[in-house]
Structures are given as C-alpha cells and as structure tokens.
Design a protein around this nucleic acid. Structure first.
Length: 378
DNA sequence: GAATCGTGGAC
DNA sequence: TGTCCAAGATT
C-alpha cells in the first residue's frame, strides 16, 4: 500500500503551517464562537453529510429554540421535527434529543470528556466523538470525516478504499501522530476548512493550498486519484400513489410510523403497488385497475367510500440515497368528513397542514395539488 | 460488512 | 435530467 512517511520535523512544520493558515483564513462560523460542548455537538450532528451553508440558518434557529441541553431534552417532538424539517436524515434529530435526555438523567448534566465515553451517547459515533472531544475538551485525537479522508489520502498517498468501514481505523492511526497536541480542536477544524476549500473532491485547487509542499499527490500530479472510493449502486425506482383527499374538515394526512423512513413527519397517504398486491409476483397493472384496487382496499380495510380521479401532469419525484420515488397523484373530494375510526390518519384544515413537520415529498405534492386547483378556477 | 437513512448544490 | 458530492451513525 502506498503511504508517505513524515519525519518528526516534517510533522512539526506541517502543524505550524496548517494552524498559521487557519488562524488567518479559518472561517468564522456560528458554532465557532466558543467551545461549549453543546454548541459543538449540535453543529457536528447537523453537519453530518450536509454542507456548511445549509446548516448555518438551521443552527441559528435551533439554538434560539433550544438554547441548552435541558431545553432540548424537554422539547416537544413536533417542535423538534419542525426545527429539523428540510435538513434530512431525521433520525439525527430524534437521536439528538434522546442523547440530551441521557445527559440530563444518566449524566446529571455532566458531559463525558473523552471520545470513548462520548460514544455512549446516541447518535455520537467515532467521528463526532473525536470532534467534540478535541474541540471542547482538548483531547488529542483526529476527527476522521470525509475531509480528513480526502486531505490525508492526498497528502500521504493513502489508497485504501474509504467506502470500506475498516479504512477509518487506518486513517485514524495515520493522522493521530500528526494532530497538534497543543491545539487538537483547531487542527481538526483546519483540516475541515482545507478539505472544503483547496482540497475539495472535484474543483480542488492544490496549487494554491497552504500545505501544497506537503501534498504528495500534487507532487506526483495524481491529485484526482485520491481518495480511492468505490461507487454505490443507483437508487431503486419505487412507484407510489399519493392520495389527495379533501373534505369540509380539511385534507387527509397521516404521520409516518417508526417502521418507515421520514419517521414522525406528515404526508398525504401514500401506497405502493406492493401494498395493493402483497403477493410476491408483481404483475403489470393499469392505472384504472390500481385505482379500483385502492378504492376496494379503502372500503374493506378502512370503511371509507372514496372515488379517486387521476391528477394530470407529471408525477412527483423524490430521490433519496437508495430509493427514487415516483408518486402519481390521485384526487378525491368528499362531501363530509368521513369517519376515521379505522384509518390511521387525520383531517387537518388546509391552512394548518403547513404547520406540521413535512418532508420535501409532501411539499411537492401540496404544490402540485394547489397548482391543479388554481388551474381549474381560472 | 452491507444496507439504510434526506436534501440541496455543483456541473 | 442525471450524477456525484457534503463535518456519518445505526442496525
């Protein structure tokens, strides 16, 4: 395996160079105004798989709404989910609150101060634990995230596949002796700033990097060969029907269960073909046949007599990490608020639907429905 | 170890 | 429109 070796002199030189650049050019971010572990923690969770510019307004609103660990621990779940709406990976929000409750009850408000101990909190894995421990508690550990992978794969010519979980330990061991023991938190954050400026995945600019003279991949003109990362399969297409049902009491909405993705968020009822024909062999069906099957299902299972009409135009599409939803919309207008005793949903007045925690796919369905109504009224 | 879990930006 | 990417953790 390729791997550049650095002398202790080179390591000291690198630390000075990196931190001098960070002191001059490091970004002024809302969560960098102090080393409060709560601030570091919330920002690190939000920043998982999410870009800085996206996080900033969420972080500011979140701190205004939940200024302390105690406030977060006692927050109402709908308020929490609403604050997280649009950030994605929603289990992060619920885990954040669960960990806040752990801190209050199990730790009596006293933060564990090491990376190892921090990982006992829900949602804090190896990366986030090291980030908090180094920034808030000055533990000398590398925070091995995507930036660290990219930066040190290039600097040190490490060609291990970063898509493999075991590779994380290899990078940890390689970076650990390089971390500045006096300023571990600043070291880690400097690496992140480097990884999101001069050493990005695509439009990197290694020629002007402050650590160019340490960059073996630049020296060898092989910058884009690193890091090595195997590709993931394309998202699988899943056809859905989105059921837009309106009554004098409002729109029919359902809350996603813990068995489903987008847990706790609200959508119009969604059904897949698999829901309509639970048997293994998915036979090709027509739109009319699917509508009939849905209507029969609603009559039998939910005691709801509803007639659906297809809503014209393109289906709503939503791409997730491993699924691609294609949602065809069906509309039903009912003259009275049907009894929902047997249906796991609620009638909500249209103006109040927007106040619920909603995923992006729901916002798209709402827009499409509103657009069709305004077209009719012209 | 592989699969799962959201969204927005860049090209 | 499609593709890849962005401060990962959990099961």
């Amino acid at each position: 395996m390729l791997m550049e070796k650095w002398s202790t002199t080179t390591i000291a030189d690198f630390r000075r160079t990196l931190l001098a650049w960070y002191d001059q050019e490091g970004r002024d971010l809302p969560w960098r105004h102090d080393q409060d572990p709560y601030h570091v923690w919330v920002s690190e969770i939000m920043l998982q798989q999410t870009q800085v510019n996206t996080v900033i307004p969420y972080y500011q609103r979140f701190m205004a709404a939940f200024p302390t660990v105690e406030a977060l621990a006692h927050a109402a779940e709908p308020d929490l989910l609403k604050a997280w709406q649009g950030l994605g990976y929603y289990s992060r929000a619920r885990n954040l609150q669960r960990a806040a409750q752990q801190l209050v009850t199990d730790y009596h408000g006293q933060w564990p101060r090491t990376a190892v101990a921090l990982q006992d909190l829900v949602g804090i894995g190896p990366y986030t634990a090291c980030a908090i421990a180094s920034i808030a508690f000055k533990e000398v550990v590398p925070a091995v995230d995507g930036n660290a992978f990219r930066v040190f794969a290039r600097l040190l010519l490490i060609d291990a596949d970063i898509a493999q979980p075991k590779t994380r330990q290899l990078f940890f061991d390689a970076i650990h002796p390089i971390v500045d023991p006096q300023r571990p938190g600043d070291f880690n954050q400097a690496v992140m700033d480097l990884g999101s400026s001069y050493m990005t995945a695509k439009n990197s600019d290694p020629a002007h990097s402050p650590v160019r003279r340490f960059d073996a991949s630049y020296r060898d003109n092989r910058v884009l060969d690193f890091p090595v990362k195997t590709k993931k399969p394309r998202p699988k297409l899943i056809p859905y029907y989105g059921l837009l049902v309106h009554s004098p009491a409002g729109d029919l909405v359902v809350q996603r269960t813990s068995q489903q993705m987008l847990t706790g968020y609200w959508t119009y009822p969604l059904v897949t073909k698999a829901d309509l024909q639970p048997d293994e062999a998915p036979e090709p069906t027509t739109l009319a046949a699917d509508i009939t099957a849905i209507e029969q299902r609603w009559a039998q299972d939910y005691h709801l007599a509803v007639t659906f009409q297809p809503l014209g135009g393109q289906a709503v599409s939503q791409t997730y990490t491993h699924q691609r939803w294609q949602v065809k919309l069906l509309v039903a207008e009912v003259s009275s608020a049907l009894d929902l005793t047997y249906f796991p949903g609620e009638w909500v007045p249209r103006e109040q639907v927007k106040a619920l925690p909603l995923p992006k796919v729901q916002e798209k369905m709402m827009q499409r429905w509103a657009k069709s109504r305004s077209a009719v009224n012209k």
